Simulated scan of single mutants.
Amino acid sequence: MKHSEFWQVLEETFGAGYGRSVAEDLVLSAVGGRTAARALQDGVPPRVVWDAVCDEMDLDEATRWRHRIDPRERPRGPAR
């Protein structure tokens, strides 16, 4: 997963405004008690950060792997 893919699936999953809030405000224990934005700045791989977001937000497997789907075919919002 690239940084650009992380931000794209975060926005697709939560929306632009809320996605940014999740990245800036949600503290993720799986990445050392940092926010997603801070973890990325500190060099944590985007895939590890995305997994931490998915775990913390209790997102399903379809959402966890959405970055593997062609962007034109991705659903918006959390998978159901």
Rank of each mutant, 00 (worst) to 15 (best):
D70S: 09
R74E: 00
L40C: 04
Q8E: 14
V44A: 06
L26I: 12
Y18G: 04
R38H: 12
W65T: 14
A37H: 14
R74S: 01
T35P: 00
T13Y: 11
R74Y: 10
V27D: 00
F14T: 05
C54D: 04
V48S: 08
E56P: 01
P71C: 03
V48Q: 11
T35A: 06
D70H: 15
T63K: 03
V53Y: 01
K2F: 12
P46D: 09
D55N: 11
D51E: 15
T63D: 03
V27E: 04
W50A: 02
P75I: 10
R34Q: 15
D51N: 13
F14I: 00
K2I: 00
V31I: 11
I69Y: 10
W50E: 08
G33I: 11
G17T: 13
P75R: 14
S21E: 13
A30N: 13
G15R: 09
I69L: 15
M57W: 04
L10M: 14
A52K: 06
R38W: 00
V27T: 13
G43P: 07
S4Q: 12
L40T: 09
P75Y: 13
I69A: 01
V27F: 08
V27I: 15
G17P: 01
Q8N: 10
V9L: 02
D51W: 13
D51M: 07
D60N: 15
V9K: 00
A36N: 08
R34G: 06
A36W: 06
G77Y: 13
P71V: 08
R64M: 05
G15D: 00
R47M: 08
R68A: 14
R64G: 00
T35Q: 05
S29C: 02
L59H: 09
T63A: 07
D70G: 03
K2E: 15
V49G: 03
L26M: 10
E5C: 05
V49F: 07
P46A: 05
L40H: 09
E73V: 03
P78I: 06
